[in-house]
């Protein structure tokens, strides 16, 4: 393993901003069977994503030390991009609040976060596979899932290599334009978003689940040589299989079903209480049979906010 500073930017007053990458290669890099880049922490709330990526670095380093032939592909792992954000509890670039993950492919003569994106992307271009570990931008607890953007360059078959239960295949939306995942696909890297975890929290079970998925993927594309249990036969779902269940009222939200639960139409999913007098404002019921994939994860809920996301067999 070699460690590289991929981005280095002076700060007016504090320590320099540095993005570190960990590179694993076969003994002869020309012998690499494939190449994979894995990037986490594009925003400073993605603690679970940073931790999972760092655990993968540790796993690969340990196994490479034990077996010089363990690494068979060219692998780059970047556990944390917005390190300044992590150290301040800030999601975005702390000075101007811009989202680094909306700045790709970047611009070397542009604003600061455009330059960060540019310098980073120069190191991320050209990989056969690209995996972005990310959280949801809203307040949800979700089953880990894979996201594919309909770009003409996504690989649905290889999505199953992760062995996750679900992969969400959706159309491009304008806000994808500056994301790493989308720009990878523009540069012909087969890219995935691996979405999991809650903002600013780390759950050990989820970390291990994601770590397993990443190791399984690396093994199946030929980047590492190891044995691992098979995962799920991944279901690739589209929007028409998803049911959104909003809360009709605002107040204190009490979820009564967890992600991963199968529920039947009419089952109680949660309650919304009046925040001040404690009365029940609403009971939320399942409108269809299906699997709970996400639920709202904050005690206060706004009116018409999606409380649950379910998927059903269509």
């Amino acid at each position: 393993m070699t460690r590289h500073t991929l981005v280095n930017l002076a700060s007016p007053c504090r320590d320099a901003f540095r993005v570190e990458g960990f590179r694993f290669s076969p003994r002869q890099r020309n012998d690499a069977d494939t190449s994979v880049a894995i990037v986490a922490g594009l925003n400073g709330h993605e603690l679970a994503q940073m931790h999972a990526a760092a655990q993968l670095v540790s796993f690969l380093q340990t196994h490479q030390a034990e077996d010089p032939n363990f690494i068979t592909g060219d692998i780059l792992i970047v556990p944390a991009v917005n390190t300044f954000g992590f150290n301040m509890g800030e999601r975005h670039w702390p000075l101007d609040k811009t989202d680094i993950n909306a700045m790709f492919p970047g611009f070397d003569q542009g604003e600061t976060s455009q330059r960060i994106a540019h310098h980073l992307f120069e190191h991320l271009k050209g990989f056969e596979w690209g995996i972005e570990l990310e959280d949801r931008r809203d307040q949800y607890d979700c089953m880990p899932y894979l996201r594919m953007i309909n770009s003409g360059f996504e690989d649905k078959k290889a999505a199953s290599y992760f062995g996750l239960q679900f992969a969400h295949h959706r159309d491009f939306v304008p806000s994808d334009a500056g994301s790493l995942q989308y720009n990878w696909s523009v540069w012909h890297t087969k890219s995935y978003g691996l979405v999991f975890g809650n903002k600013q929290q780390i759950d050990n079970n989820t970390t291990h689940q994601v770590l397993d998925a990443l190791i399984r993927f690396l093994a199946k594309v030929g980047a590492i040589r190891t044995k691992i249990f098979e995962g799920y036969a991944t279901n690739v779902i589209t929007q028409d299989a998803i049911t959104l269940i909003p809360s009709q009222r605002a107040g204190v939200f009490e979820p009564r079903q967890r992600v991963g639960n199968f529920v039947k139409k009419g089952d109680l999913l949660g309650k919304v209480f009046d925040a001040l007098d404690g009365s029940i404002r609403e009971k939320i019921y399942a409108p269809v049979d299906g699997l709970i994939t996400c639920h709202y994860h904050y005690p206060l809920i706004y009116q018409n906010t999606i409380a649950y996301r379910m998927i059903s067999i269509v």
């Binding site: 002076a10 007016p12 000075l95 604003e111 600061t112 330059r115």
Partner: peptide, 8 residues
């Protein structure tokens, strides 16, 4: 007044 490299 505070700027990083690239600030407009």
């Amino acid at each position: 007044p505070i700027v990083y490299e690239g600030s407009l």
